[in-house]
């Protein structure tokens, strides 16, 4: 069974935000919900790097652990998904998430943020694959169609990789060996408790 992961090669990311709008396009994500975003470190100085970040679908996911209603589940592909029917919008997953992935429709009076929304690795939710109900709540289910997340598929420089962890790690490793530098597999040690040694 594949172990799905994301990897952003910051030495290729140019902050073009294609991943961000591809996500909006594929899932019709409304204004204010940013399932994926690009953060620029050291902006405007030599050494500047941009990193595209979304839910990393962690091993032993912290969001899943802290959820008071246990609305998260991990698929056999190790995609961390959640049920919006169960979610109560408490916001704990945001506090626990190392990557700021969970999003809420409202900032909310008195913490009523609405149902949490986050990257699904383009694989929907608990509803039947490709159903209207699934689309309305979670967006498209590309994985069920044998496709990978659109953000990575549309990445302008092939910086953002999505797919089986071993395969994308091998791609990244080969790249770093070829070009001779790499700023690291961002988020991997935190999300997967492993890094890619080159």
């Amino acid at each position: 069974m594949a172990r799905m992961k994301f990897l952003c090669d910051a030495d290729r990311c140019i902050e073009c935000n294609a991943c961000v709008t591809a996500c909006k396009n594929e899932h019709e994500v409304p204004w204010g919900i940013n399932r994926r975003r690009v953060v620029t470190i050291n902006d405007g100085r030599p050494g500047e790097r941009s990193i595209s970040m979304a839910c990393m679908h962690c091993t032993d996911a912290p969001c899943q652990a802290v959820c008071p209603v246990d609305c998260f589940y991990t698929t056999p592909d190790h995609v961390v998904l959640h049920s919006k029917d169960l979610c109560i919008g408490c916001g704990y997953c945001f506090y626990a998430c190392p990557f700021g992935a969970p999003q809420y429709p409202r900032v909310g009076n008195f913490g009523s943020r609405g149902k949490m929304d986050k990257c699904t690795f383009c694989s929907g939710g608990p509803e039947p694959d490709g159903s209207e109900a699934e689309y309305v709540k979670y967006g498209a289910n590309r994985l069920a169609e044998g496709k990978l997340p659109l953000c990575a598929e549309m990445c302008s420089t092939k910086s953002l990789l999505a797919g089986d962890g071993d395969i994308i790690a091998a791609i990244y490793k080969a790249r770093v060996e070829k070009r001779g530098y790499g700023s690291g597999a961002w988020g991997w040690s935190t999300a997967y408790h492993e890094t890619i040694e080159v």
Binding site: P76, D77, G124, P126, E127, N141, L143, G146
Partner: peptide, 15 residues
């Protein structure tokens, strides 16, 4: 790199 999702989706874990 493209991996087909084999298993069917899991239902809401506890129901």
């Amino acid at each position: 790199m493209l991996t087909r999702r084999v298993s069917s989706v899991r239902r809401s874990a506890s129901s």
